[in-house]
Design a protein around this nucleic acid. Structure first.
Length: 350
DNA sequence: AATGCGGGGTC
DNA sequence: GACCCAGCATT
């Protein structure tokens, strides 16, 4: 019989001492008395946390749960209002799917989230990771979560040198073997906390890691270099022109972008196509356009953008060819995605 | 299996 | 600057 402690127990003991206090978690006291976190809050936090750091999510989570405390309340919200509150968080398909999911849960599941990963997986915006996370954290199911943190922790612990994404099946299998039957929700959060605070991408703090004695990567000296990844393609630079038209009564000319594609469903300034060559001018209304000295620079997932800015003051009676004038009292700069917000700050206030 | 899809922290 | 992140949908 081995004298080695079960690795899951070692990690859970570490988690009990070091768990971060996060708004979507419940305290250790209530948890010990059998309380479970609200599935709505678990779901909302997990969707917000997709490819997004805890620091970026905090304020958004607080605003969303204040505005919409239940899934039914969110389901009844106006689309544009939700997109506006999501503005700045990125990956806007998440917000569209969030609303879809809230409405399905409200109208087809009686306002209750399904309790199995398989059933959760059928909902919009819920993939393998999020389904496992909700099932484990909210419903205490022994599901294995595999996110970027887990991939790094597992690749190091077992010294898996196959580059991602090819290594995903092996990593998932190893992660599954470690998942305990007891306290699966705590365990899932513990592995991710470990990856976020100790087993970090750079300069991992191996000396204080609860798994330091059975980490193959640490013993082999490869930990800090793992996981290996296939190289990414360089980002090209695209150029565009944005047109910020202000009507004499203070209204701004904006357009709602189509649901699919970049910044889908978000409010934005009308403009040219974004091309790697010179963009073709595309003023949305007849006016005397004035070039703003500065350009808005922004980096998206797969390209850099340099956006030239043009402004104009237009009279009341003139009608736009694209977009619609939004009255000043209905215009909130915070409803804009970041690149459009940068353009506004430069053109209107710069 | 590959690609499109944001933005901010961190080094 | 590049890299990374509590990934998902689409093709």
């Amino acid at each position: 019989m081995s004298t080695l402690r079960d690795p899951a127990d070692a990690l859970l003991e570490w988690y009990d001492r070091h768990a971060r206090d996060l708004p979507w978690r419940i305290g250790p006291g209530p948890r010990a008395r059998g309380a479970r976190p609200d599935p709505y809050r678990v779901w909302l936090s997990e969707v917000m946390l997709q490819q997004t750091t805890v620091a970026a999510v905090r304020d958004y989570f607080h605003r969303f749960t204040t505005l919409w405390p239940t899934v039914e309340a969110l389901a009844a919200a106006e689309d544009g209002r939700v997109m506006g509150e999501w503005a700045g968080l990125g990956y806007y398909a998440r917000a569209r799917n969030l609303l879809k999911c809230a409405r399905v849960v409200t109208h087809e599941h009686g306002g209750r989230f399904p309790e199995t990963a398989e059933a959760l997986r059928q909902l919009p915006g819920i993939g393998p990771y999020t389904a496992a996370a909700i099932a484990a954290i909210a419903f205490d199911r022994p599901e294995t979560v595999v996110d970027g943190n887990v991939e790094r922790v597992i690749a190091r612990r077992f010294d898996i040198r196959t580059p991602l994404p090819a290594a995903k099946p092996e990593i998932a299998a190893r992660a599954g073997e470690l998942t305990p039957e007891a306290r699966p929700g705590c365990y899932a959060q513990a592995v991710m906390d470990l990856g976020a605070t100790i087993c970090t991408p750079k300069n991992p703090a191996c000396g204080i890691c609860p798994w330091r004695d059975d980490c193959a990567g640490r013993l082999a000296g490869t930990a800090a270099e793992l996981p290996a990844k296939t190289p990414k393609k360089p980002k090209p630079v695209r150029h565009g022109i944005a047109y910020l038209a202000r009507r004499v009564d203070g209204a701004w000319l904006l357009e709602r972008r189509p649901d699919s594609g970049l910044l889908g469903g978000m409010l934005g300034w009308p403009g040219s196509e974004w091309t790697e060559g010179d963009p073709a001018p595309a003023p949305p209304i007849r006016a005397e356009w004035r070039d703003v000295g500065a350009e808005a620079r922004h980096t998206f997932t797969h390209f850099h953008l340099r956006l030239a800015l043009r402004t104009a003051l237009v009279p009341m009676e003139r009608t736009p060819e694209r977009g619609a004038f939004l009255p000043l009292e209905e215009f909130r700069p915070s409803d804009l995605p970041t690149v459009m917000r940068k353009a506004f700050d430069l053109a209107a206030k710069g």
